[in-house]
Design a protein around this nucleic acid. Structure first.
Lengths: 188, 188
DNA sequence: CCACTAACGCAAATTATTTGCTTTTATACA
DNA sequence: TGTATAAAAGCAAATAATTTGCGTTAGTGG
């Protein structure tokens, strides 16, 4: 009865999941989110609507699932130079992606879902990425903010602005990073 | 054809709006959000479903409207002592309310709506409340953070935690306020 | 008091969702 | 290799939500 969280790769279930996810991405790219329906997604994915209803429950949950999958990091963030430079580059790209139309919509879909599992997942992704920079800095003996400081004073303000409709521009993002770095130096 | 944003008070339209809002609040208090439907809301409000569909569009939008109405501040925040004390008390209550089950759900409803007008409204409410503390501090010559500092380093982290499922506890909230106050003193 | 129109009610038509039952298909084990 | 098993998919009927056209009501301004 229960659907497994991570279907065995290559199985039928995995194929259906991939087809449905792809279908959702296609539709979101083509048309307005408000006119996307489960029957349409099902048709494009060559699947019956009831399959989607049984597996995901409703549109909200499906969209949240697709969004979370998209937001999952591919690997470790790029290494350019110092941990600070790496962080700056990463945050700037993060802000850009989240503030884009698609990114914003994904955020909303994730937060709107009744089940907060995807939201948690997202937070975990971000914390993981940041912890990589922290580890690098530590390895070099470079002074660096803590994870909590980065989450509270860099990530949170960016996300807040995006959600409440004030796009964070690159200059603003750099200022946030600069500030948190300055404080970490002082306290070190 | 168009529905006016603020119906004339006392008119039929205003009565319908009040009845529907009340109905929504009643239902959210009684039952799970997932089982609330427009036909049910309509019945309890003694209104036809089509009235609700025509006026609000869909459940998301209606819930966002109700939530935004609930979040609108009643008046100026309480005056207890210094601006700092006032701020501390207010933020603590703000965090509590937003982190509660109902508050969290309202936040989500507001953010999930296709139209971001309600989200913006909410942000404006918060900024307005904070600006009152700033004005008070200025009147007393008390050093105080700027609006941007408060939004970025107090409000944003609180909201982020709530949305991504880490309830901010009172101690954490006090620390945020303490930190932003400390910095404002340094820079003054 | 009358004309005007935004907003509502009603009901039929459409569309989405749920559900019981059947069939398919991976997988584990003989 | 088969064969048993169970998870997940398909199908179709039943239910529920949404949309829409049209007639009615009730505030508003003349």
């Amino acid at each position: 009865m229960g659907y497994r969280e991570n279907p065995r790769p290559g199985g039928r279930s995995a194929r259906v999941q991939a087809a449905v996810h792809q279908s959702v991405r296609d539709m979101l790219a083509t048309m307005d989110r408000a006119e996307v329906t489960i029957p349409m997604i099902a048709q494009r994915a060559n699947v019956t609507p009831s399959t989607i209803y049984r597996r995901w429950g409703d549109l909200q949950a499906l969209l949240a699932d697709v969004a979370a999958a998209h937001l999952r990091p591919e690997g470790e963030p790029a290494r350019i130079g110092s941990a600070r430079e790496d962080l700056e580059a990463w945050v700037e790209q993060y802000a850009d992606e989240m503030a884009s139309g698609v990114g914003r919509q994904m955020l909303r879909d994730i937060l709107a879902a009744a089940d907060s599992a995807n939201a948690e997942k997202c937070g975990t992704y971000t914390r993981y990425q940041l912890s990589v920079f922290i580890a690098r800095a530590e390895a070099c003996g470079e002074p660096f903010p803590t994870l909590a400081e980065l989450m509270d004073h860099v990530i949170s303000p960016i996300i807040y602005r995006i959600l409440f409709d004030q796009t964070p521009d690159p200059h603003y993002v750099r200022k946030l990073v600069a500030k948190v770095m300055r404080e970490s130096v002082v306290s070190a």
